[in-house]
Nucleic acid binder design. Structure first.
Lengths: 243, 243
DNA sequence: GGTATTGGCTATGGATCCATTCACTGCGAC
DNA sequence: GTCGCAGTGAATGGATCCATAGCCAATACC
């Protein structure tokens, strides 16, 4: 959720620098699903829409590319990053190692209020059937468990991978159905209980299992990654232009 | 060692795009130690030196900021990233989790020739007393152990953190002295042996210990991080401009 | 009828020029 | 003597204009 670690910009409110404004706008559009993976991003069009010149758009595309949200190909164009299943699994494997670390670094610094809020959010999640609301709450829950982590490098990485997998989490949550959510609720309860006990080992264990199980579930739904390009250029093949 | 995942550029040879040329030049200067942490980077100066306009330099600084090598502050300037001890420890904690993953993903795909080369490099390292040569060989050794990793996301992260800690590895290797290197040699032998046996569990274990021990050693040398700013601006306080 | 080549068009990359903003310095007042 | 303020300067951010590379289509040739 941190906008960008590279340039100093107001964490909240209107960014003074146009590049950040554009980057924030595009990032929100991508994360909300408005811009789907593989969608072409035209510099001129975005510039006109945001009332800026093409230059801030170019810098914004670089910033987002650094966050893994866009792909820029020289003399060709920019697209919203698209992952194949192998890449998505790779990201989940990274998250499997990284997020437990973030949690371990966070737990000693979590306040009682934050832990209480975790339980509130968890209850709200269990009462939710709407996919978008579930996604938002799930994000708030997990990121809140990491919020005590003082190491900015770790939280930056966690945020980054969280964002790049946003679209696939949405697609997954949509097809998982109510039955699949039961296990998620159980995992959340166990993680929060471990946090309440300040049991780092258990918390890491359950979180690792949580992410790992999601990865394995995801591997059983290759159809999430085989969707044809809708409005994208034919060169928008993948996140890595293999030149 | 992959130049940049963002824009397509020739993997080797002269980059067709100026931004990549500038980024490659600055990256090399930073990694070689020519540009030390905290050093101010002037857009105009670099542009003149590289025979380009300021625009590619700006984009290059964004690219390098994404890799964690530079820090750009709005309306202020750019500096080579500097870490305090806490940040450096944070990066080592990340590496402690991430590089074993890269190794685990790599081992099944390593060829016999590559394993043989590992032993050759390890022997060369043991015969080395020169710090810069040690650094180069150590880098080749470890990155070669990860070279079988097919997940580009993982290797990209590993390269990134390897680069950002380059300067501190150099400083550490310099003060470690011959006695400190003995343990490193032992760890290398154990890791390579586990790789030869295709024993992922052991390989991960020894690698984790290798990185962890380095982190703990580093924590005992805070003087590596207290060096005064030499030719840098007074605002070059840390890698994160706390605005 | 199929294929290769060439021409035009579009979008990005780069250069120059102008506005803005931050920092340093000098002066003045308390 | 020290603190505060204003002015100046330099470096960055942004806008416009031009060059270039890639894509697509039309045409000519096989």
């Amino acid at each position: 959720m941190s906008p960008s670690p590279t340039t100093g910009s107001g964490p909240s409110g209107a960014a003074a620098v146009a590049s950040q404004r554009v980057a924030d706008h595009l990032r929100a559009a991508i994360l909300s699903g408005e811009l789907r993976p593989g969608a072409r991003i035209m510099q001129e069009q975005v510039a006109a829409q945001l009332g800026a010149s093409r230059l801030p758009v170019r810098e914004a595309l670089r910033i987002l590319a650094a966050e893994g949200l866009t792909v820029v190909k020289s003399n060709s164009g920019a697209w919203v990053s698209r992952m194949d299943m192998a890449e998505c699994e790779g990201v989940y494997k990274i998250r499997e190692r990284l997020e437990p670390l973030a949690l371990a670094e966070s737990i000693p610094h979590l306040t009682a209020e934050q832990v209480a809020e975790l339980e509130t959010i968890a209850r709200q999640i269990e009462l939710t059937t709407d996919v978008d609301r579930f996604l938002a709450l799930d994000g708030r829950l997990h990121l809140l468990t990491y919020s005590g982590c003082r190491v900015t490098q770790i939280t930056a990485m966690v945020d980054r991978f969280w964002n790049t997998t946003q679209h696939y989490r949405r697609a997954f949550a949509r097809l998982a159905g109510d039955s699949g959510w039961e296990l998620i609720h159980a995992e959340h309860r166990l993680i929060i209980d471990a946090i309440k006990r300040a049991d780092i080992v258990d918390a890491e264990r359950f979180l690792t299992g949580h992410i790992r199980r999601t990865r394995l579930e995801l591997a059983q739904h290759p159809e999430l990654f085989t969707e044809e390009d809708h409005d994208s250029d034919h060169t928008a093949d993948a996140a890595g232009p293999a030149d």
